[in-house]
């Protein structure tokens, strides 16, 4: 189980500051941040603490299990980005 960032993300990075396990990328300090479409949660590291969801000003972060069907694809988008980041 993990949390998932969805397409309404506005890249302000509020979630990065509160995540206890630093699993949200790219962070403002990382190279890919400026051009990023959105930020992504690494499902292998996330502890589902809900902190990012509370911090997000636009409600872009959701618990994987409460994703509505039209947003389900973001689960794979978050996971895929995280896998590529770790591979690179």
């Amino acid at each position: 189980m993990s949390y998932v960032i969805t397409g309404t993300c506005v890249n302000d990075g509020a979630c990065v500051d509160v995540c206890p396990v630093d699993c949200i990328h790219p962070t403002p300090a990382e190279p890919g941040f400026l051009g990023a479409d959105m930020l992504y949660i690494d499902p292998d590291v996330c502890v589902s603490c809900n902190a990012c969801a509370e911090a997000c000003p636009v409600g872009a972060v959701m618990d994987e299990k409460s994703l509505p069907p039209e947003l389900l694809r973001y689960r794979d988008i978050n996971a895929e980005f995280s896998r590529l980041r770790k591979d690179s």
């Binding site: 509160v18 206890p20 396990v21 502890v47 589902s48 603490c49 902190a51």
Partner: peptide, 15 residues
């Protein structure tokens, strides 16, 4: 880090 091998108490881990 949270100790994921702890059978009971790691998942509230916070900053």
């Amino acid at each position: 880090e949270p100790d994921r091998d702890n059978p009971y108490t790691w998942s509230d881990f916070c900053r």
